Amino acid sequence: MTRTRATIIGSLAVILWSSLAALTIGTEPTPPLLLNSICFTIGGLIGLFWTLWRGNLAALGAVRWPIYLFGTLSLFGYHVLYFYALRLAPAAGASLIAYLWPLLIVLLSSLLPNERFKIGHMAGAVLSFCGAALIIANQSVEFSSTYLVGFALAAACALTWSSYSVISRRFGDIPTESVFVFCLATAAASWILHFCVEETVFPQAYSSWIAISLLGLGPVGIAFYFWDVGVKRGNIQLLGTISYAAPLLSTFILFGLGKTELSLTLILAAFLITSGAIVAARVSMVKSKPLYRSEI
């Protein structure tokens, strides 16, 4: 698989993640951990059936258990940290901090073997982050020491996902099919935590079950397999910048559903995010002398 094709596949994960907010709205009143449990069960089963269809199940036996532990803790940890960050701090502020993960991917990827740090990648990521910040800040961001724990969890959330994405590249020889094990193990852990801290409330409407099914199929399912291909074989720095398109596309989806209004802020955010992606893409296409190259 070529680097360009892998980058495109990774970008499809970003498109799927942009539907997360709209679909989540339709899952009420399902509590977060129960929703996490159901969706990861669906996403894991998709990967299991795909692996069986390809006849690659036996190959997973050669994968070392620390890899499975790492993947499970990353997926489970990210979502638990995110859910509780939004409970302990205002959603807009916590979301803004959590969305530092694409920027961290651009920074941390410079530590990878054969990866080069280019100022253009950082400039593109910063531009796109400013665009994402505009979208989130439009919801009246409030930072206060009262919410310090929630903001700290949001920062841990960003570090967890960026670290998972970058470290996954070091395990490029691990088959993408292994992600279904991460998903099913995350689902099992989520079920246990749900029964410990939440009241079980299943949705009554068919539309809510459809939304949950679509979440499990897309943003909390296939997206993780696409992302694994992208970060292992694609341009990880470009993917980090492209990831800022998720909140923008998410807002446009909500606008199309009548859940939000089109504004000058949204237009400016679209310009910044698009500009950042273009800058990063141009840098990726031009061979230039790196400012820094990891010796690891």
Results as ranks from 00 to 15, higher is better:
Thr7Lys: 04
Leu16Asp: 06
Leu16Pro: 01
Trp17Phe: 12
Ser18Tyr: 12
Ala21Ser: 12
Leu23Thr: 11
Thr24Leu: 08
Ile25Ser: 01
Gly26Ser: 09
Pro29Gln: 12
Pro32Lys: 06
Ile46Thr: 07
Leu48Gln: 07
Phe49Cys: 05
Leu52Asn: 10
Gly55Glu: 04
Gly61Ala: 02
Tyr68Gln: 01
Gly71Asp: 07
Ser74Gly: 11
Tyr78Met: 03
Tyr82Asn: 06
Arg87Ala: 12
Ala92Thr: 09
Ala92Cys: 02
Ser95Pro: 03
Leu100Gln: 08
Leu103Arg: 04
Leu107Phe: 09
Leu108Thr: 08
Arg116Pro: 11
Lys118Ala: 12
Met122Trp: 13
Ala125His: 02
Leu127Phe: 11
Phe129Leu: 12
Leu134Pro: 13
Asn138Val: 04
Gln139Gly: 10
Ser145His: 04
Ala152Phe: 14
Ala154Cys: 03
Ala156Leu: 15
Thr160Pro: 00
Tyr164Leu: 02
Tyr164Asn: 10
Val166Tyr: 03
Val166Thr: 12
Ile167Phe: 15
Asp173Val: 14
Pro175Trp: 03
Pro175Ile: 02
Phe180Ser: 13
Phe182Thr: 03
Ser190Lys: 05
Trp191Leu: 04
Ile192Gly: 01
Leu215Ile: 10
Val220Trp: 10
Phe226Cys: 06
Ile236Ser: 04
Leu238Thr: 07
Thr251Gly: 00
Leu254Gly: 02
Gly258Val: 08
Thr260Arg: 04
Leu262Pro: 00
Phe271Leu: 15
Leu272Phe: 15
Ile273Met: 02
Val283Gly: 00
